[in-house]
Simulated scan of single mutants.
Amino acid sequence: MKIVTINDVAREAGVSISTVSRVINNRPDVGKSTRQKVLSAVEKLGYIKNTSAASLKQHQTDFVAVVLRGRRNIFLTDLAERILDIGKEKRLRFLTEIIDEKADEFETVRRLYRERKLAGVIFLGSKLEGHEKEAEELEIPCVFSSIEAKFLNGKHISSVSIDNFSAGREVTDRLIELGHRKIALLGYFGSVSDSTGLRFYGAKESMEKHGIAFDEQLYEECDFTLPSSYAAMSRLLKRREDFTAVFASSDIIAIGATKALSDRGYTVPGDVSVVGFDGTEQADYCIPSLATMRQPSEQMAHMSVELLLEGMQGKEGRHVLLPPKWIESESIRKL
């Protein structure tokens, strides 16, 4: 569903924009038949009046939406804070929405657009699978931060992320170099439109390269929360106990998994090595401190704002990949 503007209503009704404006503002200087044509077009297109437009002197404001999908994702909340701080230095005014992982971020943006004509939007943790057309039809500058979106069509779309596939492959390469061949995966696989889910496809490629068959019995799906990761690790331990390493698709998943291992008498890294992903502050304060693949959150935040400003200036969108950094810490050991 695209954002419906007053121009669309005017085109549908075959009248001028000023006529539509007079009708939706209940002005009396419009004929009955013309008024009915406009109201029919409003109903057909699903147009909702921009409630703040009457007080604005310009068509668009400089309000920018930041929509974070995933209330308990500590990497994304930290990234959002960095984006807000950097954006304020650029004199951007933000409308921030934090929504549940199952909520529709595109409907959120359409609502915000109707309430306040947005100059652009930054998405964090967006789920693009099945929503490609909605993203392409938004018609305002869009930046997908932490999600690679180069497969989308639209000059108004930019993205900044790491190469999650290559990063997942590198994590697994490093575990194999330490002698681990029974590696459990905790998190989820995703499609090309969900770049976070590509981390485990990179892990599978690494295994195949080293002659290790991927064992589905050593994979457990979970979301990015402590209770979910703790439960997933517990299920895996009931099924298999022969793995020597765990690759978790986020630090928070790794922390939950480590707690589950400890509660069942396993030591990290003595019995099981554990690797996370994201490089959050929490990873440094775990006991033991967590080995992880660190995403460059500060650089990612700066680039998110830069790409948004470029889009607001009418420039064509770009898709940027930044290099992550491997952090070897106390939660892994050589066999």
Rank of each mutant, 00 (worst) to 15 (best):
L237P: 02
L175P: 03
T225M: 09
Y230E: 06
D194L: 01
E221P: 07
F200A: 00
L198V: 05
D194A: 00
E139R: 15
S195I: 03
S166F: 13
G168N: 06
V171M: 05
E137Q: 14
T225S: 15
L198C: 04
L226A: 08
G168H: 12
S195T: 15
E177Y: 05
L236S: 01
H156W: 13
F165V: 00
R239H: 12
L138Q: 09
I162C: 01
K182G: 01
N153C: 12
A167C: 07
I176T: 11
F165A: 01
V192G: 00
T172V: 15
C222T: 14
R199I: 07
L236I: 04
L138D: 08
V143S: 00
L138N: 05
L236G: 01
I140T: 09
G179T: 14
G197A: 09
E216C: 09
K238F: 00
L237T: 07
R169G: 04
S146C: 14
G168Y: 14
T225G: 04
L138K: 06
E205Y: 10
Q217H: 13
I212K: 03
R239F: 06
K182W: 12
V171E: 02
Y219A: 01
F151G: 11
L186N: 03
E137P: 00
G179F: 13
R240A: 04
P227R: 07
G168S: 10
S228D: 15
F144C: 01
V143C: 02
F189P: 07
G179V: 13
G179S: 13
S193A: 15
S158D: 12
R235S: 12
L237G: 07
R240I: 06
L186S: 04
K150V: 08
F200Q: 00
L175M: 12
I140A: 03
L178V: 05
F144P: 03
A149P: 06
A203C: 09
A149G: 10
L237K: 05
F151V: 09
K209M: 12
F165M: 00
E137F: 14
C222L: 05
N164V: 07
S145L: 01
I212C: 03
M233Q: 08
A232I: 05
E170F: 14
V192F: 01
K155Y: 09
V171N: 03
Y219W: 15
H180K: 11
D215E: 13
I157M: 04
D223M: 07
D163I: 04
R235I: 08
F144I: 08
K238G: 11
D194V: 00
P227H: 11
A149Y: 12
L152C: 04
G211A: 05
I212W: 08
L198D: 11
F151S: 14
S228I: 08
R169D: 04
S234K: 14
N153D: 13
R181L: 09
S228A: 15
A231Q: 14
D163Y: 15
F214M: 11
L226C: 03
D223L: 03
C142I: 13
S234A: 14
K204Y: 13
K155E: 14
R181C: 05
S193L: 09
G168L: 03
V171P: 02
V160T: 10
I162S: 01
G197C: 09
C222V: 10
